[in-house]
């Protein structure tokens, strides 16, 4: 059995006295789409932040491609091909969509020559292709900050794809997106996974989305790993239902 792409084992993180993550373990095998669910405040985003190097973890280990990344900084981890998007979208507001895409090229093995040179035509072509893929081609010359929230979310997703990650952590990709567009987004996420070979770890509140998308789902509650399994198993798991409905 090959080792998973991302292996989180026994990770704990507390802010002051508040335990946000307690002894969390999960595995993301290469090429799969994995879901992460849980009620508000259950520590999902904290776990994302721990993985991508936003803050130090108190204990445990995070292995990516078999290497420990729990002491590395955000940009270093990102250059290894482990990327995340933000719950509150973050794009470069005063730059055009195309410029947002251009600067999102992979930055690994970048020499001084790359830093000062202009991008080749193929970069622009790829950027336009990906903007087309998320349906923003007609907006490519607009300032990213002038886009609507949902459009910014799509742009952020396209920027992440531009970076050619191996593993992409998506924090609520459908939050704030027009319901009619959600089906299209699910389709795009699946296509990204299949055609581009990107492994996905997705935080999602929309049950319909995550049940359709993910092959395996982890459920967090109160900072602890509550349950995990295939979507169909979790749907009928009494603990998960209780956690969401607040019964104890």
């Amino acid at each position: 059995m090959t080792s998973p792409l991302l292996q989180v084992s026994g990770v704990s993180k507390a802010f002051g006295g508040v335990v946000a993550n307690n002894d969390i373990s999960l595995e993301v095998p290469e090429g799969k789409i994995i879901g992460l669910i849980g009620p508000n405040g259950s520590g999902k985003t904290t776990l994302f932040n721990s993985i991508v190097g936003y803050h130090p973890i108190d204990s445990g280990s995070i292995l990516y491609c078999g290497n420990d990344i729990s002491n590395m900084h955000v940009p270093e981890i990102a250059r290894l091909g482990l990327l995340r998007t933000f719950q509150q979208t973050r794009v470069y507001g005063l730059m055009t969509c195309m410029d947002n895409m251009r600067i999102s090229v992979p930055h690994v093995n970048e020499g001084f020559r790359h830093m000062v040179a202009r991008h080749s035509e193929s970069v622009a072509d790829r950027a336009e292709e990906l903007l087309e893929f998320v349906g923003l081609y007609s907006k490519r010359r607009l300032m990213a900050g002038d886009l609507s929230f949902g459009q910014q979310k799509l742009l952020e997703f396209a920027m992440a794809l531009m970076n050619e990650p191996r593993l992409l952590l998506l924090d609520e990709p459908t939050a704030g997106i027009n319901p009619t567009l959600i089906n299209g987004l699910i389709d795009r996420l699946q296509r990204a996974s299949e055609t581009l070979g990107i492994t996905l770890l997705v935080i999602e509140h929309n049950m319909r989305v995550i049940m359709n998308l993910a092959e395996h789902i982890y459920c967090l509650a109160h900072g602890e790993m509550l349950a995990d399994g295939a979507p169909s198993e979790l749907q009928n798991d009494q603990r998960v239902i209780d956690a969401y409905l607040g019964a104890h």
Binding site: H73, A78, F86, R90, Y92, G93, L94, S104
Partner: peptide
């Protein structure tokens, strides 16, 4: 525009 994002993009 957003240094945290720039870092997160590598």
């Amino acid at each position: 525009d957003d240094e945290d994002k720039a870092e997160a993009m590598g």
